[in-house]
Computed example of a mutant assay.
Amino acid sequence: MHLSRTARVVLGCITAAGLTLVHLPLLLVVLNSVNADRSFAWPPTALTGAWWHRALHSAGARDALWTSVRAGLGATVIALVLGSLAAFAVHRHRFFGRRTVSFLIVLPIALPGIVTGIALNAAFRTVLEPLGIGFGLFTVVVGHATFCVVIVFNNVAARLRRIAPSQAEASADLGARPWQTLRYVTFPALRPAFFAGALLAFALSFDEVVVTTFTAGAGTRTLPLWIYENLARPHQAPVVDVVATLLIALSVLPVYAAQRLSADPAGGRL
């Protein structure tokens, strides 16, 4: 579609304004992490690395980071297994209720986080507590997996739609067994979708707050919860900005990698 010079300028200005609105607050967080003024005076009177030193030596922040990493990895593994199997079942087989199953799998990502958190909290109290399983890392992993499954499911399903069934048929005609076809034909084609789904699922789990609040219990603190609890403490505000800056970096890397992995060689996306 051909656009006039005026239209291109207007669209460029709107795009620049939107990107500035989204990313300028992130830049302020990064600047405040090295701002020597504890009250975040603007412009900064001096720069310092003292807050970074305090954050890196904070036992609470390190423990919360390790908890977030374990929760993210656990949720990602569950999402990879369940999301991939569900994508294969829905998009490679025809059965009664297939559309309903697909809808129910995708539904958790559309529900408000607080609704999901309340529902999981009630379910865990009803089912797990009588069995002696309290709130902790396990319930956080299960809670995160409920919406991380959707990410993997969508990525794998999108890739499956792009794989021609004739490839598997040709493999079978050449004498390959089903497992050989899966290993040498289907899995290589799905590998980028697996990696992209896993990276996005981990990133989504890593910074989840609402569902974690309802499923973590008193003794489990992920990094986002640690940030939320320390944000109101005046002496911890600069340290929180440092941790938030690290979170920005950790979030950008998997999202960028997932975008590259999900790229279509023809120029499109999955």
Rank of each mutant, 00 (worst) to 15 (best):
S58H: 03
L253G: 04
L200W: 04
Q167I: 12
L270K: 03
A64F: 00
A46P: 13
A266S: 05
V30A: 12
A196E: 06
P265M: 14
S102L: 10
V77R: 02
A249G: 12
L31Q: 06
S262N: 13
A232Y: 10
R5T: 06
V30H: 11
F135A: 04
G74Y: 06
A61T: 08
N35G: 14
G117S: 06
D63N: 14
A196D: 05
A218K: 03
R54N: 12
L24K: 08
D173F: 05
V242Q: 10
C13V: 14
R5F: 11
C13S: 10
L28A: 09
F96C: 05
A79M: 12
L3H: 09
T146H: 06
A59T: 14
T48G: 14
I14Q: 15
P254R: 02
A122P: 09
R54K: 14
A89N: 06
T20A: 13
A50L: 14
V141E: 03
T6N: 06
V9P: 01
A89T: 05
S171A: 10
T213Y: 13
E169V: 00
V127K: 10
N155D: 13
L80S: 02
Q236K: 09
A123W: 00
N32E: 10
L131D: 05
G117D: 02
W226N: 02
I227D: 02
S251Q: 09
F206I: 02
N230V: 07
F195W: 15
F138E: 12
S4H: 13
F194W: 15
I248T: 08
V239I: 14
I163M: 11
Y256K: 09
P188D: 10
P25Q: 02
G197V: 11
H91T: 10
A249H: 04
Q259Y: 09
H57F: 15
T212G: 11
T45S: 08
V242C: 14
L120F: 00
V10N: 05
P238L: 00
A16S: 10
